[in-house]
């Protein structure tokens, strides 16, 4: 197989990996915030539900969660699965898993904003939603950029787990090529891909961090 053809095949896998990455973030970042707010809610039931959800998501392997999401509908409800569902199972599993991790990061970020900020806002008459959106949220974002960066970088590498349900992402393609061609080349390309992807993400996150450097907490 020519190098060009190999790259062509790999690039399809690459696109899938990037798509998994982007969709996971797009859904899990807001969902995580929602979970964090429920986790910090006064209602004990809601609080405990979220506590259990987060603990399960963090306490079991993502690979297992992925398999449950993928095979669950069939084994539990006997629903016949369309081949398209593979991809969406990956997205669902990743989103609910990452939302749990993000929720804990958000919660820490919100809790670390000093109570004086809430008090100042309250005395000035801000409503509770104004206080959260204008005062607390921006300060939380600044505090959580480093741990979020860690998770996002882990996510890049985690996209290769989609392999477990035979979604043709980067790693799946590389493995197929390697065994068909009996060479390491595809793996090397895959490695380079993940590495460069990481570099780009790290660069973007660093820029966000720099942009928020106009003030200090």
């Amino acid at each position: 197989m020519s190098l060009g053809l190999m790259l062509n095949k790999l690039s399809e896998g690459m696109a899938t990996s990037v798509l998994i990455f982007v969709l996971t973030l797009v859904f899990s970042l807001p969902l995580g915030l929602f979970v964090a707010l429920m986790r910090m809610n006064r209602h004990k039931v809601l609080q405990n539900l979220m506590r259990i959800y987060i603990s399960i998501m963090r306490g079991t392997p993502l690979m297992l969660q992925l398999l449950v999401v993928y095979f669950g509908p069939y084994y539990i409800f006997g629903i016949k699965l369309s081949p398209d569902y593979r991809f969406w199972a990956v997205i669902i599993a990743f989103v609910i898993n990452y939302a749990a991790y993000f929720a804990e990061i958000y919660r820490g970020g919100i809790a670390s904003v000093p109570s004086g900020q809430y008090e100042a806002a309250k005395v000035l008459g801000y409503s509770s939603s104004q206080t959260f959106l204008k005062i607390i949220f921006p300060q939380m974002v600044k505090r959580i950029i480093p741990p979020i960066t860690n998770e996002v970088i882990t996510l890049i590498k985690d996209t290769s787990l989609a392999f477990a349900v035979a979604v043709t992402e980067m790693f799946t393609v590389a493995k197929a090529l390697a065994s068909a061609e009996k060479t390491m080349t595809a793996y090397i390309f895959a490695g380079v891909f993940y590495y460069v992807f990481n570099l780009i993400v790290a660069f973007v996150m660093e820029n966000i961090e720099k942009r928020l450097n106009y003030y200090r907490l």
């Binding site: 004086g116 100042a120 005395v123 005062i135 600044k142 200090r216």
Partner: peptide, 13 residues
């Protein structure tokens, strides 16, 4: 009314 705090509590951002 207004309140001035001991440790200011300005909005840092």
């Amino acid at each position: 009314f207004g309140l001035v705090f001991q440790n200011f509590n300005l909005f840092p951002h």
